[in-house]
Design a protein around this nucleic acid. Structure first.
Lengths: 120, 120
DNA sequence: CATCGCGTTCACAGGTGGTTCACGGTCACG
DNA sequence: CGTGACCGTGAACCACCTGTGAACGCGATG
């Protein structure tokens, strides 16, 4: 496993409803879409909310519990794989738009961390 | 050279759940990760807890008994090598993130001491 | 209806982490 | 020297967590 990665603190989150910008990723809340590396990435509601939840805390590990309660509302039931599935969908779309980059990092036992980094 | 052991007064531990900071090491309790020399070091649960236990008493020798009861809970059974194994894992990760530095020092018969020092 | 997009759930595979072994090295002591 | 206590370190073993493709259900749409 990759043990060490560079931290990305180049976060420039804007106001509540303003666009969130992290590196080559721009999230537009009002339009429900994201622009990655200049390409428009269309997202479903769930995908969008999950990405927002992660990106607003860019560089920090967000617990699965917290992600679930934020995006789905309510406590995370044991065995619920929704988060995993949507993280997977997001990764596909993001990496398709910006090949050679990794955006969502797994921290086993804790949660996920959003941070655009070049693939090893 | 002489065994220069700087008294670690450069410790700036924050509040209970705030980040623990010692020299180039920052530990974020809520996220289960550490940032060393600006690099994100991903840690497993055990690794993280052990590092926390050591870092919160930075500069002091922490007894094996105490480490075990803190991290694993319960008394240290004679012959249990878990601590050794995890100290080894931590050293690998920390020193990979900050080459030329030593962080965890062995005090044979007593325990371990956390203190970032340049490698001899 | 037939189709489609989306969210959820399922099933399987692969990866990761925690524990324990095994072997070797160092050091103190008789 | 032997011996034993203690530690460093690589590896084996197994449970658990996560990745991932696919099936299912359902409301919206034509």
């Amino acid at each position: 496993m990759s043990t060490v990665t560079r931290s990305t603190d180049d976060v420039r989150s804007e106001g509540p409803d303003g666009p969130i910008r992290v590196a080559q990723v721009e999230i537009r809340p009002q339009e429900g879409l994201a622009v990655v590396a200049g390409r428009v990435v269309s997202l479903s509601v769930r995908e969008f909310e999950l990405l927002s939840a992660l990106a607003t805390r860019s560089g920090h590990v967000v617990a699965r519990e917290e992600l679930f309660s934020t995006v789905w509302g309510g406590p995370l039931r044991r065995g619920d794989r929704s988060i995993d599935v949507y993280v997977h969908k997001l990764r596909q779309k993001l990496e398709a738009a910006s090949p050679g980059w990794r955006f969502i990092h797994t921290h086993i036992g804790f949660g996920y961390r959003f941070a655009p980094e070049p693939a090893a």
